[in-house]
């Protein structure tokens, strides 16, 4: 049942605790939103899931595999920016995802292999509404298009979990709405297990099956850095009749004010 298991994870930088006592069990296919004040350690938690960093204590397992020591193909990732290769065209960004997955030193596709990869890339681009810009460089795209490409590219690597760190944070509200739809569709199609950090509570509740709120449960007024953050609320957004709407309202102000 538990696909991603986080067991009693602590993370400190230079003895300064950022995260403490994080335990979490996520079933396959769940969409987990992560919200919290800025600087409370949401990105740090995502870096741990990505295996970009190792926790000071505790461990994280995906599908009972041993904890990863570096980012690998099990983990797809999209950041707020720089999540595509700016020196490759839109289509080449997708082809590169296949090329990197292949083994071998050069790992560059040529001839019929490349044509086949290009066809698959074009099919994906058509599906995500980027067919008309296949030959453009990312810099020529709008922010929303660039993030759609970044998500499509991450999924082209066929990861087991998808990590999103404020993926829509730099987009205007209208684009953000259409990106919600886009991500929802993708999620319905793939059944991907997703962790998304957002500073937008509404976005978190709208997209997530589950919303985790990160906050510091203990607070030393003389030394604000003395304690780290942990999961203080764990909402199931699909629970019918759950009292979260008014709870949510209250927390919106709470979290925003402390941000």
């Amino acid at each position: 049942m538990s696909f991603v298991r986080v067991e009693d994870v602590y993370q400190s930088y230079d003895r300064r605790p950022i995260l403490e006592r994080i335990s979490l069990s996520v079933p396959e296919g769940q969409f987990v939103s992560i919200v919290g004040a800025s600087g409370c350690g949401k990105s740090t938690f995502l870096r741990l899931l990505l295996a970009q960093e190792q926790p000071t204590e505790g461990e994280i397992r995906i599908a009972d595999a041993s904890p990863a020591r570096e980012p690998d193909r099990d983990r797809g990732v999209v950041f707020q920016q720089y999540s595509v290769f700016s020196h490759m065209t839109v289509r080449d960004n997708l082809i590169a995802a296949e090329e990197f997955a292949g083994t071998g030193l050069g790992a560059r596709f040529w001839g019929s292999r490349r044509r086949a990869a290009a066809q698959r890339a074009d099919a994906v681009l058509e599906r995500v509404g980027l067919g008309h810009v296949a030959h453009a460089f990312p810099a020529a795209l709008s922010g929303g298009m660039r993030q759609r490409l970044a998500i499509a590219q991450a999924l082209a690597g066929k990861p087991r979990i998808l990590l999103l760190d404020e993926p829509f944070g730099a987009l205007d509200p209208g684009t953000r709405l259409s990106m919600h739809e886009f991500l929802g569709d993708i999620r319905d199609d793939t059944g991907m297990t997703i962790f998304m950090v957002t500073h937008d509570l509404e976005e978190g509740f709208k997209l997530g099956d589950r919303v985790l709120v990160f906050d510091k449960p203990r607070w030393d007024p003389d030394d604000p850095d003395a304690y780290g953050a942990t999961i203080t609320y764990d909402f199931d957004t699909r629970m019918p009749g759950a009292p979260f709407p008014h709870l949510l309202k209250k927390d919106v102000t709470d979290v925003r004010h402390s941000a």
Binding site: P71, D72, G76, A97, A156, G157
Partner: peptide
């Protein structure tokens, strides 16, 4: 960008 490349293998 470097992280993205790593996650793609």
């Amino acid at each position: 960008m470097i992280l993205k490349a790593q996650t793609l293998g």
